[in-house]
Design a protein around this nucleic acid. Structure first.
Lengths: 186, 186, 186, 186
DNA sequence: GATGAATGAGGTTTCATTCAT
DNA sequence: GATGAATGAAACCTCATTCAT
């Protein structure tokens, strides 16, 4: 892939994350990427397509989790949580992009299938983890975990004041360790 | 307040919720409200001001919770949860509006103080409830509850497939009842 | 004339002078005058008419000069010059208004007859003075004096740096005293 | 420079001269230049910038005078006067543009530095001429000459009736020839 | 006399997109 | 691959003006 094409995707990812899709003009992307507006269209046909390309390029969190399937289910769950918190701290931008995209209708419609697929994948993966751990009510619990992670991400990213990041991390990890223990002892 | 002014706020609230602030044109608001673009400016000076007015008009959830302070802390917490789920089902629009506003930067900046105040109010209210119930780690736990509610709201509102609404509600209520019980017995 | 009507004319005069006719909105005039937009229209029908009223109200310089026709022609000329410089210093606004009105086409067209009449009046008055003093070439000389005064007014009002006001005044008075003397001795 | 870009500057110069900056819409410029509104913005970013470009393009009168520095000071002064009158007759538009720009506040503010520089340049050039000719009071006299030229330009351009152009020219030339002679004989 | 509500026309500007080169 | 020129549509906003009260 050409250098400039890559640069455009990079810049687009950042700007879409920072300002949202609709508030980012092709012109602005071109300027920051050091290429002409026209070249962006040359490579991506139109703005919608650029978004799709950016989305596809964006690393899929879950796909990385799933790779570690050599370890036990307990380890996998703990790693999922820890990876989430680690990445949240470092890659705020990626999370912001994901949230923005899901919430703005124009982008939602555009990426509907891709997002749905990714969401379903995550949910299924978590539910299977819970099932493997013998946790009851795995469906609701998987949705709950996702809700918790999403909520934490949003609250952390958009916090007006200091967010008790580490305390929340401990809460979450403690809570799920307890859940696993309580399940085992039954 | 004049009829048309109210109508404009109504329409604006809906459109801002559905399409977001930046994707809603004054022109569109005027058209749906059956008034001229110019009248919107006559009443609200500019688009930013209209948003502020819409935000101020939007019922404050927590302010309603807080009114029921005659009851016990346990009842208050349970009522908070139930009211949340009841309203989420019926007033999707209000939640969508709130989320959109918090997440889009342009609107965040604009409503910064108002949102910060409201957020802080909710967090403090919940923390006090937890303190009254003798729950440990009330700070982190209050942030956790907020994250859970936000996460649920987002996942429910933007769900691609059926969302297990009632199961989640039961999960949440069960979880917090358990928390209260475990605390008491200590 | 009603209080508010007078206030509107006052404010309009000032704003037209400061910002020009086209850049002054009726709304702005109303706001500064403490009345509603609608009242301005009630009193003056439309913006053009308000301008005409403002123009008519604006004191006519020459009409005041002409009153002092008891004195000699020499005294009249000297008084004209001195009055001009005195007023220029104090009533910058009036001069600015006059210049603005003459130069902007929209206002020129509107006030065409009134301005033409006033201009012709001044020119004729000066030419008669020169004739009475036996000055040759009174027509050209009268136009020259007007050009000088207009030029001085503009350069003084719109000067970017300090304008040598008093030196210019002395130059002018000296020059015309000399002209009168040279004429007499012939 | 592209054809259309030049055409836009040409049209803008004319319309700004005729109707003033604020009364000339980009839309009107585009229409007369046979291009779209958007193209004007493509080339000049915004209206203010277009004005600056038009100003920079506008030939600087004095810069042409100054070139003839091979001749004597007397010749230079006479040439300055003659060139002024010659150009005034032919290039009314340029003078009108200059006057409009200096007098309207919005444009004054915008071009402040450029105008101030040009004005100062002219004044200094004339003062040096007077100094070279041994004329007393060169500062005030230079300001006077400028005032005369400005006044004549305005009165000529905005005259309601026939303006005695040639008579004024003779007056001016005669006056300054006399001034030079009187200085020499001293 | 005085006002607030209401509007149509028009202004500057942004933007996604196309096209010739 | 890469660009500058070019555009139509639509955004926010202002303004003179009218009308009912």
């Amino acid at each position: 892939m050409s250098d400039k094409r890559i640069k455009v995707i990079e810049v687009a990812t950042r700007l879409f994350s920072e300002k949202g899709f609709d508030n980012t003009s092709i012109s602005a992307i071109g300027k920051e990427a050091g290429v002409s507006k026209a070249l962006v269209f040359h490579h991506f046909q139109n703005k919608d397509n650029l978004l799709i390309e950016v989305f596809k390029q964006s690393t899929n969190v879950i796909s990385e989790y799933s790779k570690n399937n050599k370890t036990t289910s307990v380890d996998q769950l703990m790693e999922l949580l820890n990876t989430f918190f680690d990445r949240l701290k470092v890659e705020k931008e990626y999370f912001q992009f994901s949230i923005n995209i899901c919430i703005q209708q124009s982008t939602r419609d555009l990426l509907h299938d891709l997002i749905a697929e990714r969401s379903a994948g995550i949910q299924k993966y978590i539910q299977q983890l819970f099932d493997a751990l013998g946790i009851e009510n795995s469906l609701a619990k998987s949705y709950m975990l996702i809700a918790e992670l999403d909520g934490i991400a949003i609250n952390y990213i958009f916090a007006f004041t200091h967010y008790p990041f580490e305390e929340i991390r401990q809460e979450m990890i403690g809570k799920y360790q307890l859940l696993i223990q309580n399940t085992k002892t039954k």
